[in-house]
């Protein structure tokens, strides 16, 4: 029904309360391929959009576990197995002395998990996006709030969706096209 070059609709809002209520309505309408774009995270938006908890904490835990294991193995292999030598009367396998490096690598790998996990889940970097063709959308990182509904959404209908969006209290509606 939609032309292949159409990305979807973009609705602009001027304040937090309106977009939050609008998001609830879009959720209740049953749309799935839609999003809100705001200059800062809005408290309560996750619930208004019906979003689930992210799996990110598990990636962090996995990173930390890997760092911890790797550090212990590394130190054991280098100092107690591959080239054992005694220093200051300490045992070859000196757990107390190996704790600091183990700790640091645990943190390092957890942090990698958090940062790269976040990027991967968010599919960033993504330097081109259809929304960037909209001049109005530039204010999404400053002081305006937007809802975008993609044409790919199964419930998307050129007229009906537009009519529905017009009831949400936004200040402007525009169609966004993919830049071919």
């Amino acid at each position: 029904m939609s032309k292949p070059s159409l990305f979807g609709y973009l609705v602009e809002f001027e304040d937090v309360t309106t977009i939050l209520n609008a998001a609830r309505e879009v959720r209740d309408e049953g749309y799935t391929k839609w999003d809100t774009h705001t200059p800062f995270p809005i408290h309560g938006m996750d619930g208004a959009m019906g979003m689930k908890m992210s799996i990110l904490p598990w990636l962090v835990f996995g990173g930390g576990f890997m760092g911890c294991t790797l550090a212990m193995l590394l130190q054991w292999w280098m100092n107690a197995y591959d080239y054992p030598y005694l220093v200051s009367g300490k045992p070859l396998w000196s757990i107390p002395a190996f704790i600091p490096v183990t700790f640091e690598l645990t943190i390092l790998f957890s942090a990698f998990g958090a940062f790269f996990g976040m990027l991967a889940l968010n599919q960033l970097p993504e330097l081109y996006h259809a929304l960037f063709t909209s001049e109005r959308f530039r204010r999404a990182t400053s002081d305006r709030f937007f809802i975008s509904i993609e044409a790919k959404d199964p419930r998307f209908d050129l007229e009906k969706t537009r009519a529905f969006l017009e009831t949400l209290g936004g200040t402007a509606i525009e169609t966004v096209e993919e830049d071919e």
């Binding site: 999003d35 809100t36 705001t38 200059p39 990027l119 968010n122 330097l127 996006h129 929304l131 999404a140």
Partner: peptide
């Protein structure tokens, strides 16, 4: 990195 302030 192409950040677009999406709530997701």
């Amino acid at each position: 990195l192409g950040w677009r302030g999406s709530n997701r």
